[in-house]
Deep mutational scan, measured.
Amino acid sequence: MDLSALRVEEVQNVINAMQKILECPICLELIKEPVSTKCDHIFCKFCMLKLLNQKKGPSQCPLCKNDITKRSLQESTRFSQLVEELLKIICAFQLDTGLEYANSYNFAKKENNSPEHLKDEVSIIQSMGYRNRAKRLLQSEPENPSLQETSLSVQLSNLGTVRTLRTKQRIQPQKTSVYIELGSDSSEDTVNKATYCSVGDQELLQITPQGTRDEISLDSAKKAACEFSETDVTNTEHHQPSNNDLNTTEKRAAERHPEKYQGSSVSNLHVEPCGTNTHASSLQHENSSLLLTKDRMNVEKAEFCNKSKQPGLARSQHNRWAGSKETCNDRRTPSTEKKVDLNADPLCERKEWNKQKLPCSENPRDTEDVPWITLNSSIQKVNEWFSRSDELLGSDDSHDGESESNAKVADVLDVLNEVDEYSGSSEKIDLLASDPHEALICKSERVHSKSVESNIEDKIFGKTYRKKASLPNLSHVTENLIIGAFVTEPQIIQERPLTNKLKRKRRPTSGL
């Protein structure tokens, strides 16, 4: 017993010596996670971090007073192994002897410093981030199933929210409404489509400006004509009531908005009720001829604005009016007729031209339509002016008669200019590109209106002035400009410049 007691005391002394060697000089306990400095002193990692955080910048070693920084600290694995072995020896000594260790306080702390507990403390002390800490805590505590279930439920809930957000973003663009038309193969669909197009076009005519009305009406008319041609002859009974509906809707729209509806009346003529396609083609032919005449008058307007600064050229074209007008009339009417003589009366030419125009518009179905009313009214106005011209010709002399006839021709041009508003800008460009020769010939008609105004002003003063002067240069210039014009009389060319000069002198006297 005595020997055993001596041996136990010796073992205890050895353990105490080893414990003092492996103590931390700051906390005076076994080193936890030993860290060595540049001066080869060993301290606990937790104690050194606490010391360095007390001051900004480098701190001093507690043993040798040298500078220490966080970067200079290094882990010493050898001392950590020695500490672990010492703890194992102490545990074995207690089991063999059955005696508690003399320094129970220190031993209890040593026992608490088992490797499992050290790992837990290291995970908390090290600044490795929240995710690494959570992982280490889960690994160190596998015995708690409640914690695992809560963490898994949190992760699953987070994943569910992310997935639901993604699915919502994908589903939202798919919620856009999609309209699908289910059509049938019955023959009544074509008639319904035609009526739908006509009503939609009328609404567009009321909303859209004048520049786009003609294009819309032309497209709708083409669509309706194609649909009529596709149907068989057996379905004509269905077409006639639908066309009557079209007429009623167009008349109502014309009564409500007459000014807006006139812009599309000329282009919509071939959508009118037709028994066969031949009647629609004839109407299209007549409309094309009318559009040609209207576009020519538009060309004359532009030329008149350009040549208004040259009064000499405008005056020299006075007698070329009849010849150029004959050529335009021959090209406007498709019928083959002989040219009228140069010395014939211009009023007779106008009456013949009106007689040619009237039969074209005397179809029984055309008179029933609303768009032809505008053309009939313009023709009636022309006839009224010609009836007035006959009365004026009986009273005035030959020279005054010529000037009045020219004035009436200008009035006719004004009437025809009203129809110019109905034609589109695209048709003007096509006419100029296809028929430049006709445009040059028809330019002379509009330029002549300037000389007509001068004659009217001469009649106000009650006299006409003449001068025997020749202007050969002007006649040559005008002959080169206009290709299809005829030779003019030299006496009238000489008379016109004198009248304008005298007018300039006598205007201030009349004002006084």
Rank of each mutant, 00 (worst) to 15 (best):
I21D: 03
N113M: 10
D120S: 05
K294F: 15
R170A: 09
I125T: 13
K175Y: 06
H117C: 01
H41W: 01
K45T: 13
S146L: 13
A5V: 09
T212V: 06
L99H: 14
K88H: 11
R133T: 03
E181Q: 02
L156Q: 04
N53Q: 14
I89N: 01
L99P: 01
Q74R: 04
E111H: 06
I68R: 00
Q148V: 10
K55L: 13
T176G: 09
E75G: 11
C27S: 00
P142K: 05
K55Q: 13
T69G: 12
N103M: 08
D120Y: 01
E111P: 13
V122G: 07
E100G: 06
I125N: 08
L52Y: 01
A134C: 09
P115N: 03
S184A: 05
R78Y: 15
L156N: 15
L22I: 00
R136L: 14
L138N: 13
F107A: 13
L147S: 06
E111F: 07
L137F: 03
L28V: 11
S59P: 06
E143R: 08
L99Y: 03
N112D: 15
D120G: 08
S151P: 13
G98R: 04
G98K: 07
N53Y: 07
K55E: 09
V11L: 05
I42H: 02
D40C: 01
E181S: 08
S151L: 08
S157R: 11
K175W: 06
T164P: 04
P145D: 04
A17S: 15
P142E: 11
S153W: 05
I125P: 14
D189Q: 05
M128V: 07
R7G: 05
L73F: 15
S184W: 10
C39F: 00
E141R: 06
Q94L: 04
S76A: 11
D185K: 10
A108M: 06
L159S: 14
V178T: 13
L118I: 06
R170Q: 04
D245L: 15
N66A: 11
G57L: 07
N132L: 03
L52S: 09
Q139M: 05
R252H: 01
I125Q: 07
C39W: 00
L73Y: 14
S186L: 04
I15N: 00
L165F: 04
P115K: 10
I89G: 02
Q174T: 06
G160Q: 04
R163S: 13
K50R: 05
I15T: 00
Y130T: 06
L3R: 07
S4R: 10
Q169G: 09
Y105V: 10
L3F: 14
S59R: 12
K20C: 12
R166Y: 13
P25I: 02
V191M: 05
K70F: 05
E85I: 05
T164V: 14
E116W: 12
T69A: 07
I124C: 15
E23A: 03
L82M: 03
S114G: 08
Y101E: 11
I90R: 07
C61K: 00
I21H: 02
I42C: 15
R136E: 03
G160L: 11
I21E: 00
F107I: 14
L6A: 14
P142M: 02
F79P: 01
D185Y: 08
A17E: 09
G57K: 11
C44V: 00
M128L: 07
A92C: 09
K55A: 05
E10A: 15
Q172E: 09
F93A: 02
I31Y: 05
A102R: 05
E23I: 05
T176E: 10
Q169H: 04
K110T: 12
L51S: 10
S140H: 03
D189V: 09
Q126H: 01
Q172R: 07
V35G: 01
H117E: 10
N106D: 12
Q155Y: 08
S59V: 15
R163F: 11
L137D: 15
S123M: 14
I124Q: 13
V162C: 11
R166A: 08
L152I: 13
F43S: 12
Q169K: 14
L147N: 04
P34N: 05
K38E: 15
Q54L: 13
L138S: 02
K65V: 12
T164R: 05
S80V: 05
M18T: 00
S127R: 12
S80L: 11
S4G: 10
N106P: 12
K110P: 15
V35Q: 12
T164L: 06
G183M: 08
E143P: 04
E143M: 03
